[in-house]
Each structure stands twice: as structure tokens, then as C-alpha cells.
């Protein structure tokens, strides 16, 4: 007897076969099914709506171009999360390098325009009364090391289990647990003054 997961997997392999055959309707279905996951993951990492949308589009372009290389060892969702997190982290590194370069050129007077950090990120799904707290939390998440950031975002925003995160990051469950533990410790360190101030204004 088929379980729900087996049925989902069967549908997924049909979808992959259709994608490989170059069916436009299959690609549209894939985008409609997964754009929310891809966009929200990218948004939590790059913390900029336009850049997150650009990332999401690039993810689907890559899927379209490389679906032939996809080995069905992993689930499609796992593969999508892997492409999204890799692209988002690469984007952050590029942004950091551009900022460093603009600072350097401004020192030599070549280009006086210094790139600044983007303003505080306000997630569109945050209620008004939580905006300050969530904005502080997202700023702290942004300061985490890359691997910790990915593990934390996938667990607390995308609600992925430790095993699923391990598959996305191509590591072990214990490595993910360790990453999450360190991420939480770092966030606690960063956020303690904020919550203390809130308690005793």
C-alpha cells in the first residue's frame, strides 16, 4: 500500500520526467508549487525583497537548465533549497566584496561613493507590534556565519527537520544539531542586551 510520501514521490518523479521532456506546463507547475519556499528562504538570507526575487528567478532558471543532471537520490524540494541557499550565500559574499571594494576605491579618491549596509529589514509577514523585535532578530541572523545562518533559517523559518537540513547541506544530522546550537548561542549573545533593555527600559 502506498503511503502519502510514496504518492508524493511518484507525482514528483512524473513531474521531473515532464520537466526533462521540456514541457512548459510542468515548469509552470514546479514554479507555482515551490516559488513560496524558494522566495521565503532567499528573503530570510539576503533580507532584501528585490534581491530575493532576483535570487528566486535565478534558482528556477538553473533548475530549467540543469534538470537533466538532477539525480533523483534527493527530493526536488531538497535540491531547490540547496540551490537557493548556495545562490543566496554567494550573493551575500558578492555584496560584501562590492562594499569592501567601494570603500577601498573611495580611499584613493577613484570613486567617492561608498556602498552602505541596506537599511533594517522588515519582513512583510511581521505584525506591526513585533516589527522592532523581528527586525533586531533578523539583523542578528544576518551576522551569523554562513552555515549557521542556513541551518537556522531552514529550521526556524522553513520548518525543516534536522534530517531534511542535513540533506540540503549534504552533512550529518549531528553536524546540523551542532550548527543550530552554535547559531542559537550566538544569537543569544547578540540579543541579550536588546531583551534586557526591553525588560527594564
Amino acid at each position: 500500500m502506498f503511503t502519502f510520501n510514496d504518492t508524493a514521490r511518484l507525482q514528483e518523479s512524473e513531474l521531473i520526467a515532464e520537466l526533462r521532456a521540456g514541457r512548459e506546463s510542468a515548469f509552470r507547475m514546479l514554479v507555482e508549487m515551490h516559488q513560496d519556499k524558494v522566495y521565503n528562504t532567499a528573503l530570510a538570507i539576503v533580507q532584501h525583497p528585490e534581491e530575493a526575487e532576483d535570487m528566486a528567478q535565478e534558482v528556477f532558471v538553473e533548475v530549467y537548465q540543469t534538470i537533466g543532471q538532477f539525480r533523483e537520490e534527493a527530493r526536488l524540494t531538497t535540491w531547490l533549497y540547496r540551490i537557493t541557499t548556495t545562490k543566496a550565500l554567494a550573493h551575500l559574499r558578492k555584496r560584501k566584496a562590492q562594499k569592501r571594494f567601494s570603500r577601498l576605491t573611495s580611499l584613493f579618491g577613484i570613486n567617492n561613493e561608498v556602498l552602505h549596509d541596506p537599511p533594517d529589514f522588515h519582513h512583510p509577514g511581521v505584525a506591526l507590534e513585533q516589527q522592532e523585535e523581528m527586525s533586531t532578530l533578523f539583523r542578528a541572523i544576518n551576522r551569523l556565519a554562513d552555515a549557521q545562518k542556513v541551518a537556522f533559517v531552514l529550521h526556524y523559518i522553513e520548518d525543516q527537520s534536522h534530517r531534511e537540513i542535513a540533506e540540503v547541506m549534504q552533512g550529518t544530522v549531528s553536524a546540523v544539531e551542532s550548527l543550530l546550537h552554535r547559531a542559537k548561542q550566538n544569537l543569544r549573545k547578540q540579543l541579550t542586551p536588546f531583551y534586557q533593555e526591553r525588560k527594564n527600559p
Binding site: Y39, H123, P124, G125, V126, M134, I157
Partner: peptide, 9 residues
């Protein structure tokens, strides 16, 4: 964070 409304492109 898990309770945030999902953002839409």
C-alpha cells in the same frame, strides 16, 4: 519566526 506570514514575490 515560524508564525510569520509567508512573504510573496
Amino acid at each position: 519566526l515560524k508564525k510569520l506570514d509567508r512573504a510573496q514575490p
